[in-house]
Design a protein around this nucleic acid. Structure first.
Lengths: 204, 204, 204, 204
DNA sequence: TATGAATGAGGCTTCATTCAT
DNA sequence: CATGAATGAAGCCTCATTCAT
């Protein structure tokens, strides 16, 4: 009955209980979808009991929310740093676009879950995630807008729409990207950022 | 207890039973997700009994599969027609890109369901949908490839990746597009096709 | 797997499914209390599956509510009949008081449940039961009031309070009455009605 | 992390830990019922941790038992004092009847719990409470019996039954009495004692 | 064709209690 | 004395599907 927090009885026993739970949940939600993964499966994969899970997370929903918060935090931090660099706006947009692709691929499970299961969140948690996401979106849009004001980017397409256009490719990564494929995350990031920037060059 | 198939007892009673079921299912799956919608809710919304549903569809899964088949059929038909036009490849790609956006917006519920719930389909049905989808994808990729061979498009980005890049924006439409917004489906289609084509112009 | 609705595989298999469920629930709720009786125990005692129970009753709460409705209906019917008789008010009050005791003893399980578990009902159902109960209460109070107006009953005690006073003994029956005891329901009814009526005689 | 037993960090922090626990439990059990109140809620309301509760009380059941013991002790003390007064038996019965009403109203939460949740107690504790209750009951019955022997009370109703009759009104108080109402505990006590005594006057 | 009662497995969550610290 | 993480059993309920009529 001894169950230390760091023993390695099964392969899953690494880190603290909440960490193990989040890890297992991320893997399973990405693999089978949130609704098709039972709490039982999550706790089994984490090598923990159901009671322990409900000690740390209020609900299955909470687990999902926590996964979202983690990704959002990281990506927003990156964007804040990039957008405040002392560089021409085109370079910052290119860096930001490449970064969101690279980090999304590095955390592909989170990305899959993010776009596939957000609508399953309880309304109030959904609102909080959306608000956080909007902040990210807004920072990106502002850079596009600046480029348009400076005449570096074409301005016949609303900046808002450019963001929706580009974030589709982020959204989509989970559908097609395979880590065993020929392209690394950095490759994809560079190509996609190139396609975006080229698309934004002022017209013929 | 007599209940004709075409009477109009409730607002939901339009069309044949299978049509009503597909309509109700589409609306509900888009609104609440496939897993969170019960068969009971679907048949109630369609003004039909459970027995009737199982008479026409083998399972809940079948309903989802049928919805997919419907969209895929339509979009593939469009693409076949466009790609076989006697026009410069750049124009055909532009038309195809705009068309997939326009039809996806016109059938936004189907689009939401398509990208959000495909992983819930039974494996064998999932394979059949993917195969069909690959055909569409392939047709599109071939046009890009042709443009690259002709020197009309840049060729430093794999054609395959261009398709993955662009189809992200289709995927994403269900997340942000609102029919009450300022932009019509045609507007968005044109803008997105423009951004794609500009992105494909051979390098500086 | 054959399970007819009227076969007698176990002792519990008599009557329709809802009847069997209500019967089992009444017995168990009275014996162990509502909160301490599991749905599993109820369906097992009724010889039915959980699914069947939820086909007929929306929740465990509903089962309780249905039991209440049954008793209330019966007792209100009785009171309506008695209070409309062409008899002196004192006789009608005596008859009503004796009747509520007799019927409460005849349905002692319902009586126990009624007073012990009503507060466990969902608020809205609780309101509906209380409203129904108030009607009964009101009819009784009106008879007391009439007796006071006619000078047949003392009027130094509010009629309302007399009802609260007397219904305590009904409430209490489930706590002490045992059917194996010396007194029949009719005996108790007569004695209690006598005590009430004597208590109401105009003062010394 | 230092948390003194008598500091006033929250409103709930009054008295010793066991007192606070009993106070919180009484309030909550009366409000929501014993089974519907979790130990977690009790300790939270008392501003104490679970470990602390299990330090002072062996179980949740113990808490309930302690509440019972408290009321019983007080009411028995009162009755012993009253029944041993040097007064005519009718006056003593009147005083005892009024007193049990007054003290039950003064401790309405305990009264509610007493009659509503006793059946949830573990069997052996239930027996101990019942035995104590029987003593009270017996003292009261003896006074009635004495009055009947002396010819002061009617004797066509068993003394035992008179007690069951009257204690119903005590039982019932928790159901209808509201402290904001027009009647004080003393008012109700007087009225109920009057009704009882009048009911006991020797027959016409 | 269509009904709707019934199944039975499984889902999420709660909770009293224990125990190492 | 006191903590609070963890247990494990049990609770209520949902649901896709079947089948006798």
């Amino acid at each position: 009955m001894v169950r230390g927090q760091r023993t390695a009885e099964t392969g899953a026993e690494r880190g603290t209980v909440p960490e193990r739970l989040l890890g297992a949940a991320t893997r399973l939600f990405a693999e089978k979808g949130f609704e098709s993964t039972s709490v039982q499966e999550v706790v089994a994969a984490a090598g923990v009991t159901k009671g322990a899970m409900y000690h740390y997370f209020g609900s299955k929903d909470d687990l999902l929310h926590e996964i979202y918060a983690r990704v959002l935090r990281m990506q927003t931090d990156h964007l804040v740093e990039i957008s405040s660099r002392e560089e021409p706006v085109a370079e910052r947009v290119h860096a930001a676009a490449a970064d969101v692709i690279v980090t999304s691929i590095a955390n592909l499970d989170d990305t899959k879950i993010f776009f596939r299961s957000m609508h399953q969140l309880a309304p109030e948690k959904q609102r909080s995630v959306r608000a956080e996401r909007r902040k990210y979106h807004e920072l990106f849009r502002a850079m596009i807008g600046q480029g348009q004001s400076e005449g570096v980017f074409r301005d016949d397409v609303p900046a808002e729409l450019v963001v929706d256009y580009f974030f589709g490719s982020v959204h989509h990564l989970g559908t097609w990207y395979r880590s065993q494929g020929a392209l690394s995350g950095t490759d994809v990031g560079r190509h996609f950022a190139d396609l975006l920037l080229a698309g934004l060059r002022p017209g013929v």
